[in-house]
Simulated scan of single mutants.
Amino acid sequence: MSTRGSDFVYHWISDHLSDDPISDHVLLIIEMAVDAKRAAEAQGIPGHEIDEEISTIYEFIVHALR
């Protein structure tokens, strides 16, 4: 992932992670990863910059939930 892509994802997830109780962690992680990628593309960050490290996005969200 490019620096631009990783910075975007880091900030997007930090801004969108709710403090509310989570009923389904797996669903939340998948939805957040997909939404972050869409938001990045809307900001002009190509999907391939995010796709290169998509597992990193999932891992980042998991760590953020802890």
Rank of each mutant, 00 (worst) to 15 (best):
S18Y: 03
Q43D: 12
L28N: 03
D35W: 10
L27S: 08
S14D: 05
A33V: 10
D51S: 15
D19A: 02
Y10I: 00
E53L: 08
E49Y: 14
E31W: 06
I50E: 09
P46F: 06
A36Y: 13
E53Y: 07
I13R: 03
S55Q: 15
E52V: 11
V62M: 12
A40H: 08
E31M: 06
V62Q: 14
L27R: 11
L17N: 01
D35Q: 14
E49R: 12
Y58K: 04
H16D: 01
S18E: 07
L27Q: 07
T56R: 11
F60A: 05
I30V: 15
A33T: 12
G47D: 12
E31A: 08
I54S: 07
L28P: 02
I30R: 13
T56P: 00
I29H: 01
S14H: 04
F60D: 04
Q43S: 13
V34N: 06
E53T: 10
V62D: 13
H16W: 02
I22V: 15
W12M: 00
I50N: 05
P21F: 07
E49C: 12
A39C: 04
Y10P: 00
I61M: 09
G44E: 12
D15W: 00
S18A: 07
I30K: 12
S55I: 13
I29A: 03
S14P: 00
H63Y: 12
D15T: 00
E52I: 11
M32L: 10
P21A: 05
D51L: 14
G47K: 14
I45S: 10
I30E: 13
V26H: 04
W12P: 00
D19Y: 04
I57G: 01
I61T: 08
H48F: 15
S55W: 15
K37L: 06
I50P: 05
H25A: 09
L17M: 06
D19I: 02
E59T: 11
A33Q: 07
P21E: 06
S23G: 05
A42Q: 15
H63R: 14
T56G: 11
S14R: 06
V26E: 07
E31F: 05
S55F: 15
I29L: 03
D51N: 15
S18L: 08
S18F: 04
H63E: 14
A40D: 08
A42W: 13
H48S: 14
T56V: 08
V62Y: 12
H48K: 14
A40R: 07
G47F: 14
L28Y: 08
D35H: 12
Y58H: 06
D15C: 00
H11G: 00
S23Q: 10
Y58Q: 02
